[in-house]
Nucleic acid binder design. Structure first.
Length: 214
DNA sequence: AAGTCGCT
DNA sequence: TTGA
């Protein structure tokens, strides 16, 4: 696949929904086809899989990773690895164009030095969900999280720094990008059970990419 | 407990 | 919908 068009940046429609949490509406919409094409190549090397959590439950989301590190879980806990535990090979490289888009989005929100070395790929089919959790397996919480949404829309849940209370609901559409960091870096967050639907680019799935510094 | 269940 |  040819390089991305890198149209992102032309769209300045940004909603700030917490002190340092931002929704960039449609930020990667025009790059969506190219992003999905890159992901198909990644998934050929490291296939999607359903993890088991430490509690023994099976995640409904299908997951892979690219970059220097990939996020995994099993009964022993959550962690990053430098090789795919299925293939035994290093995780596929993070496509440079994706990394650049994530960095540009972070910069747009005032996170100047973001250089992700891990990208978690989560594919949601109808019925799949993500319970409220914190992204806390990384070592430097001064670095933000950047999240791309592609395909079917989803309801994002935005909680507090501790469990409890009712999370805010934010609709994520195809092409939207979320950035959160600073005092919001360890907020609980999740995704409501995905509603059935069809999207012209992805069919009946939602694709989510989260870029992190391990 | 990134899940599931049970009570409100 | 929330709390354990």
């Amino acid at each position: 696949m040819a390089s991305l068009d890198l149209f992102a940046g032309e769209n300045n429609d940004v909603t700030r929904f917490s002190e340092r949490a931002y929704l960039l509406h449609g930020y990667v919409e025009r790059d969506a086809n190219a992003i999905l094409e890159q992901l198909r190549e990644v998934i050929k090397q490291s296939p999607l899989r359903q993890f088991v959590t430490p509690g023994g439950g099976k995640m409904s989301v299908r997951t892979s990773s690219c970059g220097d590190f990939g996020w995994i879980t099993d009964r022993k806990g959550y962690r990053y690895t430098d090789t795919d535990t299925i293939t035994g090979e290093p995780w596929p490289a993070m496509p440079a164009e994706l990394k650049e888009l994530a960095e540009t989005a972070a910069k747009e929100c005032g996170f100047e030095s973001f250089s992700p070395n891990a990208c978690l790929i989560n594919v949601y089919h109808p019925g799949a969900a993500m319970g409220l959790h914190q992204d806390k397996d990384e070592s430097d919480f001064s670095q933000p999280i950047v999240s791309f949404s592609l395909g079917l829309p989803a309801t994002f849940l935005w909680g507090g720094l501790k469990r409890g209370g009712s999370p805010h609901k934010i609709t994520l559409q195809h092409g939207d990008v979320l950035v959160w960091g600073g005092p919001d870096r360890l907020r609980y967050h999740g995704v409501k059970k995905l509603a059935d639907g069809q999207h012209p680019l992805t069919g009946n799935v939602r694709v989510n990419l989260t870029f992190r510094v391990r």
